[in-house]
Design a protein around this nucleic acid. Structure first.
Length: 550
RNA sequence: GCGCCCGUAGCUCAACGGAUAGAGCACUUGACUACGGAUCAAGAGGUUGCAGGUUCGAGUCCUGCCGGGCGCGCCA
């Protein structure tokens, strides 16, 4: 019996109690069944009685007793007890709990996927690094979390587009072009330009591709440097991110919106909605109508459209493409932008509470030997994604960033996250997976495969603990997707790995010495394989490899 | 000044409003006749920043303080 089936059974018991007149209450749409922290609280527990007590006008423990009495008579239930203020603790019969192993093995890659978010069309925008420099550490946290969230949302059944916005319009691109031009001529880059070593590299690549560029008039050369430099930078961004196993469905160019008149069209739309006005020679959006602390400029008095205008157009474009939820993942230094974003949405006639969601990620610091890693020679800024990957590797890097909730400021110690030992959660989980693979190989060698399955033989408490942990996976995935919290998957995998290691220490798959191979051993091979599948599926959601050998 | 985020064990951090607040590291002590021990078992470690409030129940929600981070351009 899966937890979902048990939850449905509990709900049926509520329905039966109501029908019999024991309770007078509306049957809840969904009942939640959890794995209790303490094993003495049963395989599963539910707080449904506590929740129903008030509407039913009865003490919670009494409600729980009505349900317990019905549950005890149901198939697959070994026991149901009322505990504490009114919790209902449920123990499953061994064969009922053990049958889960077969369910998981048969589901394979599909185990953990659900239809919870089916029908949702979600636009997920993250990283959005400017094409004027490398991906840096601040983006990297979102690269890991955003890509994991992408995978999670799809696993929960949502229709998702991962999108990288390219700010290739405006004054910073002119500075970028000027920096490249200066570097190509061997002059020092302008004071307000971009100073990293990569500028010289990109400039050289542009000159190599277009040998005559330095002979052109300056204005023409700058235009070419801008266009070709951007193309080079985008290639670098893409390469860095792909190496980190992060991919985007759409790279969305800001300047393309300007070129195609879509910014003007968006401004017209906002004007029609009645929130645009002219003052001081500029065009404004009345965002104060929707809680912003001041109105914002869309078109400057010199005629140039602002970043903000393009963002409004971008939002309207996303909605035009059919997304009903636009998720923005921003760094903590951009949180001041949230109010304005919501105002854009409201000005466009949508409800910000419905159509956008802004996730704010706190800062990441890297330390080594107690000292913060600060300057990157290469980028002239803080540590880059490539340097981070060089330092810790993709698996440790992704796992370490995905393991913590985004709204916690994070300090990562290089020495700690690269240790190849149980000090390091990523290796702990990967080792558990490698161990399942190794156990499977060894079992196969002595003739134990997936042939005999007698789940009533899975009677060890270590078995029960492992099986209930395996049963939790689909709910963990769905919850992590709904709460936009990939770190829940990582924490769960650590729990599961621990339950597996304990089980492995106590329940042998291959008998010791010359002992005979029994149906218990053969059935345990299923449990081992189910664990292998869940660990692999979970690591996959985090973009971390699941090696068969370490 | 205004706004957002954070404050949990010595350290890094968990905990859909649920049971005695949990892991890992570090510290102390065990299990190596080991299906790869990169593992497992045990111990110690807490007034969840402070003070009120809401309720069957608060680390979690509300109010006010204290401390830290970040942001408040016709920049992007």
């Amino acid at each position: 019996m899966t937890p979902a089936e048990l939850a449905a059974l509990v709900r049926d018991c509520v329905g039966a109690a109501v029908a019999a007149g024991d309770l007078s209450v509306a049957v809840p749409g969904e009942v939640v069944v959890e794995r209790p922290k303490k094993p003495e609280h049963g395989d599963y527990s539910t707080n449904v009685a506590l929740r129903l007590a008030k509407p039913a006008g009865r003490p919670a423990r009494e409600v729980a007793e009505f349900l317990a009495a019905r549950l005890r008579d149901a198939d697959g239930i070994a026991g149901a007890e009322v505990a504490g203020p009114g919790f209902l603790n449920i123990t499953l019969a061994a064969d009922s709990l053990g049958s889960l192993a077969r369910v998981i093995v048969e589901a394979g890659d599909g185990y953990g996927r659900s239809r919870e978010l089916a029908g949702a069309r979600i636009n997920l925008e993250f990283v959005s690094a400017n094409p004027t420099g490398p991906v840096h550490l601040g983006h990297t946290r979102w690269a890991a979390l955003g890509d994991s969230l992408h995978r999670l949302l799809e696993a929960a059944g949502a229709d998702v587009a991962a999108e990288h916005y390219v700010n290739d319009f405006g004054s910073q691109m002119d500075k970028f072009a000027a920096s490249l031009y200066a570097a190509a001529q061997g002059r020092p880059v302008p004071e307000d330009g971009y100073h990293g070593d990569y500028i010289a590299d990109v400039a050289k690549q542009v000159v190599d591709l277009q040998p005559g560029i330095l002979e052109l008039p300056e204005a023409e050369a700058l235009e070419l440097f801008k266009a070709a430099g951007e193309a080079q930078m985008l290639q670098l961004l893409r390469t860095s991110l792909e190496r980190f196993r992060v991919s985007f469905d759409v790279w969305f160019s800001e300047s393309s919106m300007h070129d195609e008149g879509r910014v003007d069209a968006a401004l017209d739309r906002l004007r029609e909605q009645g929130h645009v006005y002219d003052a001081d020679g500029a065009v404004w959006l009345r965002t104060t109508d929707f809680g912003d602390d001041k109105d914002r400029v869309l078109v400057r008095s010199n005629g140039e459209k602002t970043y903000f205008a393009a963002d409004a157009a971008y939002y309207i474009d996303k909605r035009g493409r059919g997304f009903d939820k636009c998720v923005y993942m921003l760094g903590a230094d951009h949180h001041g932008y949230v109010g304005r974003l919501k105002a854009i949405v409201a000005c466009a006639g949508d409800d910000p509470e419905q159509t956008i969601e802004v996730l704010i990620g706190q800062l990441v610091k890297l330390v080594r030997g107690g000292e913060e890693l600060r300057l990157s020679k290469r980028a002239g800024t803080i540590v880059t994604l490539d340097e981070f990957v060089d330092l810790v590797g993709v698996d440790a890097g992704r796992y370490s960033l995905a393991r913590w909730s985004a709204d916690t400021p994070l300090t990562l110690d290089i020495a700690e996250i690269t240790k190849h030992s149980n000090d390091n959660p990523v290796y702990y989980v990967q080792y558990a997976h490698a161990r399942t693979c190794n156990a499977k190989r060894n079992a196969a060698e002595v003739g134990i495969g997936l042939d005999v399955f007698e789940p009533d033989l899975l009677t060890s408490p270590y078995e029960a603990a492992l099986l209930t942990a395996l049963g939790e996976f689909p709910r963990i995935v769905a919850t992590a997707a709904e709460l936009r919290a990939p770190h829940r998957v990582a924490r769960y995998l650590e729990d599961l790995a621990a339950a597996y290691h304990r089980w492995y220490d106590n329940c042998r798959i291959i008998p010791q010495g010359d002992d005979e191979i029994t149906a218990v051993n053969r059935t345990r091979a299923w449990v081992n394989d189910a664990t292998r599948i869940v660990l692999a599926n979970g690591l996959g959601l985090l973009g971390v490899s699941a090696p068969e050998r370490l």
